[in-house]
């Protein structure tokens, strides 16, 4: 098997085993209801994580995601409260804003050759600050269109509900998978992760690709924010703190190399679902503190990073063996 597929295979295996363990303890967990909720509850995280996958594959990082989600919520809530704009129009304006925000960060990263960590860290503070300026308090969203959106779902066999936002996440993943693995843009993103200088020499439009990657992440963070506001019916500047870190965790657990150059959007979905599964388990158990989620995710992350390191080492060793064998 291709060693690059190993982290993905490991992720899928962990997910299946984890679900099996849950099922043995709580047979009710194997139902479309739980599955539907798993998708709904993690929709915003999943959508943001798709963007993050692209960023990480390209060798970058985007720390602004959580703040952008919070800003989005507050922006929508405030605009809907103070103006008579239709939510769809507000969504459109907002998505343009967050996309431009991401594009601007990409531009700075490329033109000034700044580390993405610093640029998006600045972006994180900026977006959070803007959210505070709009409103310090939580602003409830009440709009008939919003209420209608929240009632939309597709009934699954077994009475489970695939809600609008859960379905949207799956769509975004499908779109992400095609974009990453079946387009020239996706190949360029992976190429950047292999080495910017080399990619440039090979004719990858570096500037355009980097800007597009962060614009995509900004767009998806905005979309994630919309989903989050649908999920919570409010905008609050303190919401979604640390979501970017959850997204990074999901991406890495999903088998994407944190150093870039290799990764799978589908793996990220599994990563998100593993994280959601742990939370569901804790809810079913009822006695565990929700902080256990963090502990388990921390342990999983460690396992995966060690696994990746080990695989890289193995590949190196194999290569040097081959080189010496051929001499």
């Amino acid at each position: 098997m291709n060693p690059r597929l190993l982290p993905l295979a490991a992720t899928v295996m962990i997910f299946v085993i984890a679900y099996a363990v849950c099922y043995i303890q709580f047979p009710a967990m194997l139902s479309t209801r739980v599955a539907g909720n798993l998708l709904t509850d993690n929709a915003f995280l999943g959508i943001a994580a798709v963007g993050m996958t692209f960023v990480i594959i390209s060798g970058g990082i985007d720390l602004s995601v959580g703040s952008v989600i919070a800003f989005t919520g507050v922006f929508i809530a405030v605009v809907l409260r103070d103006t008579s704009l239709h939510p769809l129009a507000v969504f459109a304006i907002l998505l343009v804003l967050t996309t431009l925000f991401g594009a601007a960060m990409g531009m700075i990263i490329h033109v000034l050759r700044m580390p993405p960590f610093i640029v998006t860290l600045a972006g994180m503070f900026l977006a959070r600050g803007l959210a505070y300026i709009l409103s310090v308090d939580s602003v409830p969203i009440s709009h008939p269109f919003y209420d209608w959106l929240q009632t939309l779902y597709w009934l699954l066999p077994g009475k489970g509900r695939l809600t609008l936002i859960g379905g949207l996440m799956l769509l975004v993943f499908a779109f992400g998978i095609l974009l990453a693995h079946r387009t020239r843009f996706g190949a360029n993103v992976i190429a950047l992760g292999g080495g910017v200088q080399t990619a440039r020499l090979m004719g990858v439009p570096v500037a355009r690709t980097i800007v597009a990657i962060y614009a995509l992440s900004g767009f998806l963070a905005g979309l994630s924010g919309i989903v989050f506001s649908l999920y919570t019916s409010a905008g609050y500047s303190l919401a979604a703190v640390g979501v970017e870190l959850d997204a990074i965790a999901a991406v890495v657990i999903g088998g994407t190399l944190l150093t870039g150059g290799s990764g799978f959007v589908a793996g990220t979905l599994i990563g998100v679902l593993i994280m959601g599964l742990i939370q569901t388990y804790i809810i079913f158990d009822g006695t565990l503190s929700s902080w256990w989620t963090k502990i388990v995710i921390g342990a999983l992350l460690l396992v995966f990073i060690v696994l990746q390191k080990g695989l890289l080492g193995l590949a190196d060793r194999r290569r040097s063996l081959r080189a010496s064998g051929g001499a």
């Binding site: 020239r184 992760g193 080399t198 090979m202």
Partner: peptide
């Protein structure tokens, strides 16, 4: 000056992959 993380085919055809 090729990308070690891409496949041989992707390296050969990067930017002009048949679609």
């Amino acid at each position: 000056n090729l990308l070690p993380n891409l496949t041989v085919a992707e390296n050969l055809l990067l930017g002009r992959q048949p679609r």
